Simulated assay, not measured.
Amino acid sequence: MRFGMFIPQGWRLDLVGIETQQHWQVMSDLARRLDANPTWESAWVYDHFHTTPKALPEATHEAWTLMSAFAAVTDRVRLGQMCTCMSYREPTYLAKVAATIDAISGGRVEMGIGGGWYEHEWRAYGYGFPSAGDRLGRLREGVEIFRQMWTTGSATLDGKHYQVDGALCFPQPVQTTSAANRIPIWVAGGGEKVTLKIAAQYADYTNFDGTLEGFRHKSQVLQDHCTAIGRDFAQITRSANYNVVIGATDKEVADRLAFVEDLQIKGGLPAEQAAAMRENLATQPAVGTPDKIVATLKELRDAGMSYAITYFAEAAHDTSGIELFEREVAPALAD
């Protein structure tokens, strides 16, 4: 199994209590830490502008700016976002940004892309909030524009949502890691009628439901779409995101859950909402002692989940959970 990790950037109130002028130091130190440890194949950020689950006046650092900065301070680890909202930036512009960061990083960009969902954020930034059909229509057309620009150097499309005429992308992405000789595309989301159909056509990677039952079901839907269009299902790497709360004992797990809850409250989340989030977090697949997490992830690996993107809510404040995961979980799941 392969592993990536989200770098805290504030979106999930994970930088609360740290002075703003120290945020970049904390984030860049974590990025360098991942870069130096072969456990981690990739570092990730979220593409959001306001905190969740409530918009609060706390820092949320912009994803693609961070991608560029991480590219300049690391050498090995791959860099992705899970996931970029197609409609927040024109796809021609985004393809150019990604190609530039690919050059800065020496060919380490992963393009996570989706239709977008955070309605408050959309409206606050003046994007409106198009129907799900329009958002997914933009996703499909935008991914087509990416592929054209990254493989031929230009894109022309007279679509319903985007009209481009000879948009150039030079320099071309430098990486040669994918079969198509371009930046790998991760189509994120589990919508069965549209998103997974787009994934079957365009994705190098997918990212959807990380529970065992949900993962098996979404995988079957994806496979059916692949069969319908004649694509080899095995060409697509299936991933999922996991909130990791790990401790050597059940008490340590409970203490870490309490720390996360307290962080949310300090960030301004109402106590009852923070308590509900804690209760939900406690039931998730990658919460528990190392043996429990290993057993869960082995079942998921057997179901075809070969790339886990992890999130440690306390990472900006305490890396002991990451260290425990590196020592006792990752080696037990190594390919």
Rank of each mutant, 00 (worst) to 15 (best):
N181W: 13
A308L: 13
V260R: 08
R140H: 12
Q21K: 10
L333M: 02
A63S: 11
F259K: 11
W11D: 06
R89S: 07
R12K: 13
A276G: 09
Y46N: 14
V77M: 11
F233A: 05
L168Q: 07
R78G: 09
Q235C: 09
D75S: 14
E141C: 11
N243V: 13
F325E: 12
S154G: 00
G230S: 08
L94K: 02
E213K: 06
V16L: 04
Y242F: 15
D158I: 03
T60S: 09
Y118I: 00
Y46C: 02
A330T: 14
L269D: 06
V77L: 15
V221D: 02
E279R: 14
R2E: 13
I246D: 05
I18P: 00
Y205A: 02
I265E: 01
A330G: 10
G126W: 02
M67N: 03
G191F: 10
P171E: 00
L30M: 03
E141K: 05
E326W: 15
R301A: 06
T176I: 10
F312C: 10
P290K: 10
A332K: 11
R238G: 01
R138S: 00
T84W: 04
G159F: 04
L212H: 10
A295W: 14
F325K: 12
D250V: 15
G247Y: 07
G191T: 13
F233L: 00
W122H: 09
N181M: 02
R231C: 04
E90D: 14
P91K: 04
A63L: 02
